[in-house]
Amino acid sequence: MHIETVKSALMVSDVHKSYGAHKVLKGISLSAEKGDVVSIIGSSGSGKSTFLRCINFLEIPDQGSFQINGEDVIFRKGRDGKCHPANWRQIERLRSGLGMVFQSFNLWPHMTILQNVIEAPIHVLHIERKVAIEKAEALLAKVGLYDKKDTYPAFLSGGQQQRASIARALCVDPAVMLFDEPTSALDPELVGEVLKVIRGLAEEGRTMVMVTHEMKFARDVSTRVMFLHEGQVEEAGSPAQVFGAPTSARCKEFVAAGSH
C-alpha cells in the first residue's frame, strides 16, 4: 500500500525568542495543513505578534525549527551562540511564498494601489508586467477596490487600505497568509468590510495564520485556535474547545473578557 505523505504548509517547532533579558517566546510550536485557518489569541505582551513575525523572519528567533511550504530553513550557529538563518536568499525566497498583512497596512505611499499590488509579482517573482496587472486588477475587484486602482493610499480610508494590502499579499499567490492583527487599527465601522474579505479567503480554502482580537470572528472562521500567555501556548484546539470549554483558567478569563 502506498501512503502519500502530504507535506504541511507550515511546520514550526519550539520557537524561543528573547529581547535581552526579557524572554518573549518560550517554546511555541505551530503546524498548519493546507486549508487550515489558525487563529492566535492572547493578551498584549503574550508574544503573538512576535511569533507570527518569526515565521517570516521579520524577527529572528533564537531557537526553533521551521518548515515552510515543505522546505526546511537552514540555520547556522552565530558567534553569540544564537541561531541565524544560514542563507538569506532562502529566506527571501520563502518570504515570497508567504503573504503578510500588517496591522498598520504598510502600503507604499509613493505608488498607487495597483502599483503596490504588482510590485512584488514583477520585481520579486519576475512575472511579466501585463500578466501581473491583469491578476492585480482581478484581485482588486475581488476586494472591492477596482475603481480605486489608480489612487494613492493616502486618499483611501483605513478599511480600503487594508483591503488593498490584502490584495497585495494575495497577488504573489502565497502558500500561507499571515495576518498580524489586521483590524486592530481600524474604526469599528470599517472592521466589518475587512473581516468579510478575510472570511471569503478562509472559505476559499486559503491557509492562514491570524493574530487577532476579534474573538467572534476567530471562532467563526478558524479551524484551530491557539491561546498564548506569556510566551507559551496555554490552550490549543478547535474553536469550540478553546472558546466554549477552555481547560486553562487564564484562557477562561480571557475568553470571558473578550465576549462582552
Binding site: 520563502l94 508567504l98 503573504g99 503578510m100 504598510n106
Partner: peptide
C-alpha cells in the same frame, strides 16, 4: 513598516 512590508514580500 514600509520597509518591513518590502522585506515580507521577499525583496
Amino acid at each position: 513598516g514600509e520597509l518591513e512590508a518590502a522585506r515580507a514580500v521577499g525583496m
